[in-house]
Amino acid sequence: MSVDTATVAKIASLARIKVSEAEIEAMVPELNGILAWVEQLGEVDTSQVEPMTAVIPNTLRLRDDVIDADPLTGGDKRDAVLANAPAAQHGFFGVPKVIE
């Protein structure tokens, strides 16, 4: 499978990265080189193999339902949450107006 300029433009749009025509042109051969290389995986017979789910055997722990159990995972910290916001206003994050 290889990509053309239209595909690269579409991927860039999905990834929300603005790219110029010239950047797209440059990326097409680069991405095709990488994709052609990774496609050698197709040689491997994996018909009897389950995809890896956990790299080290381990089970998912579930936590107790306790509010603000740990200050690092709990709420009630609006100032900390908004401290780095480019456009914090009245306790909200501001974004360009969205029309739904």
Binding site: R63, D65, V66, I67, D68, A69, D70, L72, T73, G74, G75, D76, K77, R78, A80, V81, L82, H90, G91, F92, F93
Partner: peptide, 23 residues
């Protein structure tokens, strides 16, 4: 539930904006 699916911040309805938000 008292707290959120993946963090321990509260779920109560009608709180001050962004007051029940964890990192």
């Amino acid at each position: 539930s008292n707290s959120k699916l993946f963090s321990s911040s509260a779920t109560a309805f009608g709180a001050e904006p962004n007051s029940q938000v964890s990192l």
